[in-house]
Amino acid sequence: MILTLHDYWSDRGCLVLQPYDMEMGAGTFHPATTLRALGPTPWNAAFVQPCRRPTDGRYGENPNRLQHYYQYQVVLKPSPADIQDIYLGSLAAIGIDFGTHDIRFVEDDWESPTLGAWGLGWEVWCDGMEVTQFTYFQQMGGFDCLPVAGELTYGLERLAMYIQNKDNVYDLAYNDAGVTYGDVFLENEREMSKWNFEVANTEALFDLFRKAAAECERCLKEKLPIPAYEQAIKASHVFNLLQARGVISVAERQAYIGRVRDLAKGSCQAWMEKNGWAA
């Protein structure tokens, strides 16, 4: 399936990139999305990104919620006029039959308070299941996107469940030799859920958050937007872990989100300046 998508998007002018080697909550955090969505230079890329969402962990008990899963992400800048048709073509390419499946574009505006970013778009439903997040970025890091990029984020596990007609993600066939998704990831989900919710050392995490934030600011002083942005990604993930541990109160939560947003915005600002795009 991934290879089909690679072929499909490569044929349509996308660079096929690799996952970013850091923990992040969504493919949108990949610098190939965030930073490249800024500025006037056209950019078309497709890649797989593993995502970690600690609070989505269900100890391996839920048929499709995972704290670690894979997104397939496509970024097209500027957004092509026929982007919906091209996207539907990709669904057909991976085997979804529009004669028997109900595809719908349901309003879902996207906003990332930690990235200072927002866009309008839809969640794409296939028979009621969200299989893709489809967004026209309007702002990133507090800057207007000039021009606007279209972002397609496929939930790979969910799509695979469709194509293989499985009710439970852990029953997915990983290969043709009987290895399932559960064989590969079930124990991982159990242990990571336990760690995310119950075990992770919160003091160490608070410390990590502070250090990442400080390092980000140091990088910004050195006019190094990419390392600064990496530290912002790190701070964001640590914040997510602290959330899962339930040690951040509602009041503090806003302050932490604001802190991460400032780091991300600062990185975007530095990137804009370095490229000579800042107004």
Binding site: P78, D109, Y136, C145, L146, V148
Partner: peptide, 12 residues
């Protein structure tokens, strides 16, 4: 809520 899109959106 409204949005910009496509190549023309290089301008606000």
């Amino acid at each position: 809520k409204s949005m910009r899109w496509g190549a023309a959106s290089a301008s606000t």
